[in-house]
Simulated scan of single mutants.
Amino acid sequence: MDRTGGAPGGAGSPEDTNDPRRQLGEECRSHRELYPGEPLSQTQLARLTRTSKSTISRVETFVGPVPVDLPPLLDQVFSTDGLFKRLYEEITAQSFPEHSRKRMKLEPGAIAIAEWSPTVVPGLLQTASYAYALFREGDPRASDEELAKKVQKRMARQEVLRGSSPPDFSVIICESVLLRNVGGPEIMREQLAALLHHGAQPTTVLQVLPLSAGTHGLMDGSMSILTSDDGQPVIYTEGIRSGAIIDEPSAVRHLSRSYDVLTASALARDVSTRMIRKLLEAS
């Protein structure tokens, strides 16, 4: 459901050689110094990745967060076939609560993702402003910097839908999610527009479950079905402060059937789009 973000702080200690944050910094420095032809300076690498020398320095010395758009640019400059992107995904996964980490690892490799969200816009579809508003409400004592890091990690997860071969993505959102004013009218207008954009993608099916729908088997909380390339689905369910991965075949079959029933009860794709557009125009 993505009510909250990762725990404050980073991955592991910089002294931990298994820490992906440290590995990313060391790989960056190594590839820069061994660049074909002649070594690149931090300034030259910064120019190639459209960032600053100070950012490259911080990345290589494991100080502060890694900008979300930097890893794919490093892969492009160094021709590393997704190495930096994978390390960044590990960094992001480690910063989430333990119950969310397996899901974070499963998402990038999933060929299909199906989600049901009864209370908030799913994390994979949230705008940065919407996510920030949720994080602020969930942790009112957090600093702006801590909240910004959480938002950055939430946005990084969305890369799974932006690649050249995104998974088949199906999502059902309760109508109440569209009506709930998160962060104010401007943030909600931006979020509704983002939903329209996502819903128009050929690999995405977005449906709205109307408030008039009856009782169903998934009323207790949110659920995600992640199917890997071997065809085996696993299910992630989430409560307010807890979550669980379910892979026992009979339980997966039962919950998947409940999702199918929910799909049949939800508004059709085009009708859902019209509802969202009408709410956006009226806002």
Rank of each mutant, 00 (worst) to 15 (best):
A7P: 01
V66E: 05
K153C: 13
G12M: 00
T263G: 14
L147A: 03
S95T: 14
R47A: 13
R189F: 01
S265W: 06
T237C: 12
R274A: 15
Q76V: 06
S54V: 13
R50W: 12
R241M: 07
V205N: 04
I245T: 13
G5D: 05
W116F: 05
H31W: 09
M1S: 02
S176G: 03
G10N: 07
P8R: 00
G199V: 02
E26S: 01
L206I: 09
M104V: 04
F84Q: 07
R103V: 10
L192R: 03
P166C: 09
L73S: 12
I56T: 08
R32V: 09
R274F: 13
E26D: 07
Q23L: 15
V205M: 06
P108W: 11
V59A: 05
S224M: 01
F84L: 01
G123T: 07
S258H: 12
S41D: 06
R101M: 04
S222A: 11
A133M: 05
T92W: 01
L40N: 01
D270A: 08
S79N: 14
P210D: 02
S258L: 15
L267W: 06
R103I: 09
N18Q: 11
G37Q: 11
R162I: 01
M219D: 13
P233R: 00
A251S: 06
K278C: 03
M155F: 12
R274E: 15
S95Y: 05
Q42T: 05
C28R: 03
R189S: 15
G199W: 06
Q23M: 10
Q126A: 14
F135S: 07
S256R: 15
D81R: 11
M219E: 14
R22T: 13
P118W: 01
H216G: 13
A156D: 08
I91D: 03
I245H: 04
P108Y: 06
I111L: 04
A156L: 09
I246T: 00
S117M: 07
A133P: 07
G9E: 04
V120R: 01
P67T: 05
G231W: 02
L124D: 05
G12P: 04
Q232K: 11
Y35P: 00
D69C: 07
D229S: 12
K150S: 14
R157M: 00
I235E: 08
A213D: 10
E90D: 12
A93Q: 05
I173C: 08
P67F: 08
Q158F: 06
A244D: 12
D168L: 11
S30W: 13
D229I: 05
G138L: 09
A244E: 05
I240Y: 14
R241F: 10
R154T: 13
C28M: 12
R269N: 08
H31T: 06
P72H: 10
Q191S: 00
E146T: 14
V120Q: 01
S272K: 05
D220T: 08
P97G: 02
L161A: 11
D247A: 11
E33W: 02
T55A: 12
V234H: 02
F62M: 05
A251M: 08
L267H: 02
V261E: 14
K153I: 11
H99F: 15
L218K: 02
P36R: 07
M1P: 03
S13H: 10
I276K: 10
V63N: 07
T119P: 00
R58P: 02
W116P: 01
